[in-house]
């Protein structure tokens, strides 16, 4: 059963990754081609997932939307990890006062709801894809930073580090060669889990009109556009929403199943 879920998740993720790399391979229509005559057609043989208010093919738009959506998620996760690595390492290895200072900053960030934090950043920096990516990255960072700090603290007092000290290794050498690589092993798994979350957040921001501008085929923006016509054309919201759910769920399932890989 679990095996089946894993295979399904891998298939789903591979499909969307392929869509992100070569959308033309999978999409029958141009995602931006307007066809007013075919506006609001329900799912049919011609348009498998229906069309939107301008007659654009929903399926093709979802396929073409994979690239911006996945890219925003992946970039945001990478930025979050980068910030977290710096903060977590300084907190875990820089001594008591730095640890205390960074700990309080992280707690303040934790106290604010993630999306609100991202909104504040966007309000300051202005809307757009780049700001969305950075905003989501900042939102994800405190969680990762906490975990990296904890990992480093545990490893710092481990017998392995003691043995390296007895062999005459410097603090920096121990950090670089023994602590960081071991601290990052479980982080890789967390990042897979976080990817789904980041995609959700990015979609939410686009839904609020703060991410990709229309008519870019981005899933969150598509949701937002379909919202107005929810009673008239449910497929405009339902299928982009499904795409988000599928990717987020698949990333989570895969992340969980690799949880114990690489860590003893």
């Amino acid at each position: 059963m679990r095996q089946l879920f894993r295979v399904l998740a891998a298939v789903v993720l591979l499909f969307f990754i392929l869509a992100a790399i070569a959308p033309n391979l999978l999409a029958p229509f141009d995602p931006l081609a307007i066809d007013p005559a075919a506006a609001f057609s329900s799912p049919s043989a011609g348009h498998v997932l229906g069309t939107d208010e301008s007659g654009r093919d929903i399926y093709s738009r979802i396929i073409h939307g994979a690239r911006p959506s996945l890219l925003i998620g992946a970039m945001a996760t990478a930025i979050g990890l980068g910030i977290a690595l710096v903060l977590g390492t300084i907190a875990g290895f820089g001594g008591r006062w730095l640890d205390f200072g960074i700990g309080r900053i992280l707690e303040v960030l934790f106290a604010l709801p993630g999306l609100l934090l991202a909104l504040v950043f966007i309000a300051l920096a202005g809307p757009g894809v780049t700001t969305t990516v950075i905003a989501v990255g900042i939102t994800a960072a405190p969680g990762y930073a906490r975990i990296i700090r904890g990992q480093i603290l545990t490893l710092r007092s481990s017998p392995m580090v003691e043995a390296a000290t007895v062999l005459g290794r410097s603090r920096f050498h121990v950090l670089r060669v023994h602590i960081l690589p071991n601290a990052l092993a479980p982080i890789g798994v967390l990042a897979t889990l976080g990817l789904g979350q980041a995609i959700l957040w990015a979609a939410s921001l686009s839904f609020l009109g703060l991410g990709s501008p229309p008519p870019t085929p981005e899933w969150g923006a598509m949701l937002s556009a379909g919202r107005t016509y929810l009673s008239l054309a449910w497929w405009m919201t339902f299928f982009p929403g499904m795409a988000i759910v599928l990717v987020a769920a698949a990333a989570t399932v895969l992340g969980r199943s690799t949880k114990f890989g690489g860590v003893r």
Binding site: M160, A163, A164, V166, L167, G168, H178, P181
Partner: peptide, 21 residues
């Protein structure tokens, strides 16, 4: 540090004193 090579150590649980990677 430079004199540490004169002094070695072994422990009760050797495995935990090795880098698992």
């Amino acid at each position: 540090r430079s004199r540490r090579s004169q002094l070695g150590a072994i422990y009760q649980d050797p495995l935990s004193s090795f880098d698992p990677r």
